[in-house]
Simulated assay, not measured.
Amino acid sequence: MRFIKHWKAVLLSLTIVATVFLIWDAIFTKNGVWGFNPDYHLPFLLLGMPIEEWLFFFCIPYASIFIHYSLEYFKPNLLITEKNTKFITLALIAIVAPVLVLNWGKAYTTVNYSFLIGILLIGFLYGIEYLRRFYIAFLIILIPFFIVNGVLTGTGIEEPVVWYNNDENLSIRLVTIPIEDIGYAFTMLFGNVFLIEKFKK
């Protein structure tokens, strides 16, 4: 694969996306939309967030996009047709949009789904070729996502590492994971893939 040859594009993309999400994260942490259990992290805080949270936005996206590009390398013909990719993208927007409108004002749902619709529109207009593979890769990424995020939100441990204020989300959990986290992950990861592809060119 020699994925390392794209290190400039990857590092620049990770930095840009991480900056956006860290600003979002810091505001939400300050306003009690979510928080971190001090029993599970080091005592070093920056903008109210543990150092592990800062590293999250580099380590997790890197590992996830590596899965995406591994799929591209080992299964180059594993793609959704352009027609179906457009249909899936529009269908996702059609599902998310009314949920966003009906729950406007709940901080996590509002910001998360606004960003999700935004990245889906960008993908539809400028990145259909990337989405053709990414939808498949994302389904694979969801396997480790549910394991890791499940533990972080309290599955199998006495208290969650990350807690959520249910007044600011849909209060729908997949075991212990807020359903919005799937959209959060999609936006963060496809945002990285989209930028990497642009920077590679």
Results as ranks from 00 to 15, higher is better:
residue 98 P to L: 04
residue 196 I to A: 04
residue 117 I to F: 11
residue 84 N to M: 14
residue 13 S to P: 08
residue 65 I to L: 13
residue 156 G to L: 13
residue 154 G to V: 12
residue 95 I to E: 01
residue 2 R to S: 14
residue 39 D to M: 09
residue 53 E to C: 06
residue 157 I to D: 15
residue 71 L to C: 09
residue 194 F to D: 06
residue 163 W to A: 10
residue 137 A to R: 07
residue 42 L to P: 10
residue 12 L to T: 14
residue 115 F to C: 12
residue 6 H to C: 01
residue 137 A to K: 10
residue 152 L to N: 15
residue 56 F to I: 09
residue 75 K to L: 15
residue 143 I to N: 07
residue 127 G to Y: 02
residue 82 E to K: 14
residue 28 F to N: 06
residue 149 N to L: 11
residue 181 D to V: 11
residue 57 F to K: 00
residue 83 K to A: 14
residue 118 G to W: 07
residue 12 L to D: 03
residue 154 G to M: 07
residue 71 L to W: 08
residue 181 D to R: 07
residue 32 G to W: 06
residue 18 A to F: 02
residue 63 A to L: 13
residue 57 F to M: 01
residue 11 L to N: 04
residue 143 I to R: 09
residue 167 D to I: 01
residue 17 V to E: 01
residue 17 V to S: 02
residue 125 L to N: 12
residue 176 T to Y: 10
residue 99 V to W: 03
residue 37 N to Y: 12
residue 106 K to D: 02
residue 173 R to H: 15
residue 154 G to K: 05
residue 64 S to Y: 08
residue 77 N to Q: 14
residue 116 L to N: 10
residue 11 L to M: 12
residue 144 P to W: 14
residue 175 V to P: 02
residue 22 L to R: 07
residue 188 M to A: 11
residue 90 L to C: 12
residue 65 I to W: 03
residue 81 T to S: 15
residue 107 A to P: 00
